[in-house]
Simulated scan of single mutants.
Amino acid sequence: MSVTLNPYLNFRDEARTALEFYHSVFGGTLNMSTFAEFGQAEDSADADKIMHGQIDGENGITLMAADTPSHLEYRPAAGFSVSLSGDDDATLRGYYDRLVDGGTVVEPLVVAPWGDAFGMLVDRFGVSWVVNISGGAQG
């Protein structure tokens, strides 16, 4: 038996673009299915929107996302961050640098008082991320 906890991001109309962007960041495989493919497009405007998308990225990363159909209220992400952490300095810095492209640096990725490299950003889709590289990281 196993259990997995992973982010599932919701968008109004940007899931396809966001998933393609995150796939460029994390690599691996990307699978997307539309509401029409599952026969779930109550509104024809939703037919080509993403009902479920999943990235099975490198380094064990799994990220899922979907568009919120037009008949449901959409609430933008708030009050949380997606966290990336570990000791692979080059990989984590690469993720940070690619995620911040078109986004906003909240905290630069530098060595923090606790000895780890730490940074925060909001990506171009409004998703908050934190990156923590275990002690000994270069800043």
Rank of each mutant, 00 (worst) to 15 (best):
M1H: 08
M1W: 00
V3A: 15
N6D: 10
N6Q: 09
Y8N: 15
L9S: 07
L9I: 10
N10Q: 12
F11N: 12
F11D: 05
R12Q: 12
D13E: 09
E14R: 15
E14V: 01
A15N: 08
A15Q: 06
R16K: 15
T17P: 01
T17W: 00
T17K: 11
L19P: 03
L19D: 00
L19Q: 05
E20L: 13
Y22R: 09
Y22F: 14
S24Y: 01
G28N: 07
G28Q: 06
T29S: 14
T29A: 06
L30Y: 09
M32W: 00
T34G: 06
T34N: 05
T34A: 02
F35E: 11
A36V: 03
A36W: 03
A36K: 09
F38P: 00
A41C: 07
D43N: 15
S44Q: 14
S44C: 01
D46V: 07
D46S: 05
D46T: 11
I50E: 12
I50R: 13
H52V: 04
I55T: 06
I55F: 02
I55N: 03
I55L: 13
D56I: 10
D56N: 15
G57H: 01
E58D: 15
E58P: 07
N59L: 05
G60Q: 08
G60H: 07
I61Q: 03
I61W: 03
I61R: 06
L63C: 07
M64I: 13
M64T: 10
A65E: 04
D67H: 09
D67I: 03
P69T: 10
S70Y: 01
S70I: 08
L72G: 02
E73G: 13
Y74C: 14
Y74G: 11
R75I: 08
R75G: 05
A77F: 00
A77L: 04
A78V: 04
G79E: 02
G79A: 02
G79Q: 03
S81G: 03
V82S: 11
V82G: 07
V82I: 15
L84I: 13
S85A: 11
S85F: 08
G86S: 05
G86K: 02
D87W: 01
D87H: 14
D87M: 00
T91F: 14
T91L: 15
Y96A: 11
Y96C: 04
Y96D: 08
Y96T: 06
Y96W: 09
R98N: 12
R98S: 15
V100P: 13
G102I: 00
G103D: 02
T104Q: 12
T104M: 11
T104K: 15
V106D: 14
V106R: 12
V106N: 14
E107C: 01
P108C: 04
P108L: 11
L109I: 12
L109V: 03
V110H: 04
V110D: 11
G115K: 06
A117L: 06
F118S: 08
F118Q: 08
G119I: 10
L121G: 04
L121P: 00
V122M: 07
D123F: 04
R124V: 03
G126M: 06
S128P: 06
V130T: 15
V130P: 01
V131S: 02
V131C: 06
V131N: 09
V131W: 04
N132Y: 00
I133W: 06
S134W: 03
G135Q: 09
G136F: 02
A137D: 08
A137S: 12
Q138I: 02
Q138N: 13
G139M: 04
